[in-house]
Design a protein around this nucleic acid. Structure first.
Lengths: 242, 242
DNA sequence: CGTGCTTTTGAAAATCATCAAGTATAGTGG
DNA sequence: CCACTATACTTGATGATTTTCAAAAGCACG
């Protein structure tokens, strides 16, 4: 179910996600104008809140939890194009329909904005428009990296890239401590999601992780937890050094 | 060789590429400010004019010809992430280094802009910043589509998608005539480029085209020319219906 | 403590890559 | 203008990574 409240349950100024998000381009004193547009939603795990091909009427900003973004082929084949976590802005597209679907991996909190209204607001806050361009540029770079992975890397290299990115990702959030990165990686997604993200099957994902384990590159205490034992080796694999 | 002239050889107002490009966000009367920043270059076929990893000091705008954009792995594996033709803006990235390389496929004309200077100009012309966001959003959508292709489509589907896109692309330029699309597709890139764009080998590209030919879906009068005989069938393949 | 789901593991099959010639095509110099 | 060379493309045979099919093992939840 999607629970909706017309106003954000907390003011934008107190939002945990603000520092991670494009909203921080707006000054404190102007924040109430943004808040007036925002509709705060709760989305339960497994719920699809953006349907590929539907009219693109809203923008979204993730303020809690994680979503998977995906595209489908008519026969059900699925490609996950990315994961959206706290701070991610969704719905950037010129087209009148959404080019991808989005489904909550866990309990999420999101802010919804009417497209035309936010567009209008952007005219008054060029700083936010600038931040959106930054965000889009970064996503473009990430997308190109993913194309390299999908087009040219082996299954081993794909999994290694995935784990290394996840580890780096975690350290970005909490502790940016130079070369030292989180050793424990928590995966909010299933093997099936990982497979669809890396262009593999669940069996190949499972087998590859098992092999990493036998090579003492990782430990897998539970299906959703991975301990990185040999970060350097994984990073080497990820970059294709072999 | 890269031939350089400090001022565009023709004024921006007379530029053929303007209508296709972000430059058209700037009014005629302000165009001289843009022109003052632009350095017009000629790039010969085969020349790499953006080196992946180099400091990103410039933005580029393609005003003639076509380039391939690519990423490399240390052992030489290559993924072409896209082709940049007239009107394409290059260099959108927050990072201080280029995330991809660019090589001219044929004789190109490009406009080069100093990054900081164009950034400064953008502050005065929010309309252009808006257009850049549009461009970036569109590229993001294209990138997601390409991820679906690379991650989940078969070789046949990839080639079909490629040909259909190329055909649509041509018709965008010259004749936007509803459902009717150009039947003749001219390919400025080699089989090797196509392979690296689609995540395949040249042999698979060649074999698949041969098979399309034997199935009367296409004709291949010369290596760089393809006549689309059965557009509907190709489109069906491309979207995974088959 | 079943029941249903996810994950792992195994064996067989298939698509695509690799290796290896052979055939066009274009560009060069005699 | 024509041989000659280099490069690009095609075609064939073989091989390997990954998928598919199948079943067992964990795990979570009622």
């Amino acid at each position: 179910m999607i629970v909706e409240s017309v106003r954000p349950s907390e003011p934008c100024s107190a939002c945990d996600a603000r520092s991670f998000s494009v909203c921080n381009a707006i000054e404190l004193r102007d924040l109430d104008r943004l808040a007036a547009l925002a509709v705060s939603l709760t989305v339960e795990a497994g719920r699809t809140f953006i349907e590929e091909g539907d009219p693109a009427e809203c923008f979204f900003n993730v303020t809690g939890g994680t979503a998977k973004l995906f595209k489908l082929l008519p026969d059900g084949r699925r490609q996950i194009t990315g994961f959206a976590s706290t701070g991610t802005f969704l719905g950037l597209a010129v087209s009148s329909t959404y080019a991808f679907g989005a489904e909550a991996l866990d309990a999420m909190r999101i802010c919804r904005f009417s497209r035309p209204k936010l567009r209008a607001l952007l005219d008054d806050f060029p700083a936010m428009e600038k931040r959106l361009l930054e965000v889009a540029s970064n996503e473009l770079v990430a997308a190109q990296e993913q194309m390299l992975l999908l087009g040219r890397k082996t299954a081993r290299e794909r999994l290694a890239s995935f784990l290394v990115n996840r580890a780096a990702c975690l350290s970005n959030g909490a502790c940016v401590c130079g070369t030292r990165v989180a050793e424990k990686v928590t995966l909010p997604m299933t093997r099936s999601d990982i497979a669809d993200y890396l262009g593999l099957t669940i069996e190949t994902v499972s087998r590859t992780l098992t092999r990493f384990k036998s090579e003492h590159l990782i430990d897998v205490p539970s299906a959703s937890e991975i301990i990185i034992r040999d970060y350097a080796a994984l990073q080497g694999l990820a970059t294709g050094l072999n």
